[in-house]
Design a protein around this nucleic acid. Structure first.
Lengths: 150, 150
DNA sequence: GATAACTTGATAAAAAGAGTCAGGTTATAA
DNA sequence: TTATAACCTGACTCTTTTTATCAAGTTATC
């Protein structure tokens, strides 16, 4: 299984924000540099986080991004869903066919349960948790484990 | 979340096989008709199931497909993995960057656990279980719930 | 040898993901 | 009120994956 690069960039941008010593807005240039992505691409990603209410954007001079929800309340599931609403929904595979969602279907229930168990794990950890624990600096894993004051 | 149509077709083809009264090989034409897919596309799907050893193909006249593993030992996870090996592996999102898999990474561990929990649910049910329970006739869900001797 | 099946490789359309860019909007500060 | 710094938006391209088809090949039976 492979979670998308966009999800990974979003998580690491939020970790970078959580590690800031001050509450001042952080610019896209600084974030992009931190997660090693282009400014234009990361801006697109940050927009998803703004729209789902995890962070706020501040325009104009001295603008940038700040948390709207405190980082200890933002779960990894929140970020994954912000980047791909589809993971939190459940759709049958072929909508063309008539499908009565009210009927019991062992198979559908099974896949919904599989989805729910996956999300439950992702809900069990927050951005703050990750920032406070050994984690990879920019993407899922990298040579250097990060220590906060390095 | 949406599991692929191919996975769904594979599962329902296997259910159709499990519901056969005899052990004779079942032809792709009959299976394709049962799951409402084209013969050529379903043949490609069945090939995945043959290659992963869930079923056997018999060529020539009176050929078709038969189980290699008994249906009560084939889990939904087996089918999902047969159709997409990737779900059973775990890859970091950006292999370009140096990544030392031996280092601890809270984030990587979290995503691996999420994947494992999803697979655990899919391993908890077999093709035979589905065939014996109320399920949708052709795809994840459909108007009619199936009863075995209808 | 004819026929009925599955198998394989080539191919292509469609969808999703990754990425860029120009122009637009908003806020600050001189 | 103008210049500038920042985020926002829509259009667009490129690549990969998924879905799908078809013709030719292989194998087994009669």
């Amino acid at each position: 299984m492979k979670f998308s690069q966009s999800i990974d960039l979003a998580i690491h941008a939020l970790i970078t924000m959580a590690e800031q010593p001050t509450d001042e807005p952080i610019m896209i240039r600084k974030l992009a540099n931190s997660v090693q992505a282009s400014e234009s691409y990361l801006a697109r990603i940050m927009l998803n986080l703004v729209k789902t209410g995890l962070i706020k954007s501040i325009r104009g001079k001295h603008g940038g991004f700040v948390f709207k929800k405190p980082p200890h309340t933002i779960t990894i599931a929140d970020v994954v869903i912000a980047m791909d609403q589809d993971v939190a929904e459940f759709n049958c595979s072929w909508e063309i066919r008539n499908c009565d969602q009210s009927k019991e279907c062992t198979l559908r229930n099974l896949f919904k349960e599989a989805q729910e168990q996956m999300l439950a794990v992702l809900r069990s950890m927050t951005i703050k948790d990750i920032a406070n624990s050994p984690h990879c600096k920019t993407l899922f894993c990298e040579e250097e484990t990060k220590t906060i004051n390095s």
